[in-house]
Amino acid sequence: MSTSKPENISLPLDLISLVLPMHIVVGDTGEILQMGTTIEKIALAQPNMPKTIFEFLQVRRPRISNSMDQLKEMQGRALSVVLQDDDSVSMKGTLVCLPNSGVLINLSLGFSMVSVVQRFGLTLNDFAATDMTVEMLYLIEAKTHAWKLSKDLSDRLENARRIAEEQAYTDTLTGLKNRRALDQTLDRLTHDGSPTEIFGLMNIDLDYFKQVNDTQGHAAGDAVLQRVAEVLNKETRKEDLVARVGGDEFILLIRNCDDLNLLESIAKRVIKGLEVPIPFEGEVCRISASIGTTLSEYYSPPDSDRMLSDADLALYASKNKGRAQHTMFSPKNNDWQPAPGTEISPNAR
């Protein structure tokens, strides 16, 4: 006895729904004859219960007109379908022509599955056991969580990196910038290739600081350095750079400045500020400062090494003149001594 394959199979609606809960049987004139339980949930949520397939769905791709003849030609093709009333609800579909008349369309949720499931209140029981939609929803949710954990981690690492970088550019005792920060800023200002901004470079060396350290101790020295930082911050603008580059040596970059008078007055105010006696544990510490300054305008191309050494030259001139002095470097005679009336002569070199 041999078994032969059945030519046709027939199934009651509730059984078809077990395997195809999103199927629609459409009659020859487009009328909806039966629907699976899940697609029926969606149909029932429409403003008016659709009577024909064309009232309910619109085939987006391939583009066809709303006729049964055209629909039948789509047999076996992959269809992209949206709700007639809301094209944000997209589904995938495929259809077959039924032996006698009409077509059977089977649908599944497309990329909008998350919002569709939410909106129509679909549950685990609304999907065929073979449908991977639930697994997709699981994955989307699990991956979203995992992604958020990773994102949080990178945010924290980025934050830690910022702090570490900030610390790497900061002098811990005074909170001022350090040598590394100065070098980087100078490098940017002199090697950028762009039309460079004019800035003043001010080299400050504390006077009598060694005596404070030797006679009043290192704690007093530290207090003095912190006070120096306050004074320097007070006498400069936010965009200027204030760096501690040695034990009692500081460099200021006065940004966007070509005004020698302004530099002179800043230097005077710094010296005056530093000469205010600094109280420490019932005593006072007294210091002053010698300052040498140069201007980026004097150099073509800008050269940070030469600026540093020229400011140094001017600084030692201040020391030689008896301390608590400010001296401008003069490009005219390539020395600190300014020839009267020729301080500003950028083309001299």
């Binding site: 499931v117 939410q118 639930v134 989307i140 949710e141």
Partner: peptide
């Protein structure tokens, strides 16, 4: 209750 999909994933 268990909603299969929740707002914001």
């Amino acid at each position: 209750d268990f909603d299969l999909a929740v707002a914001g994933g």
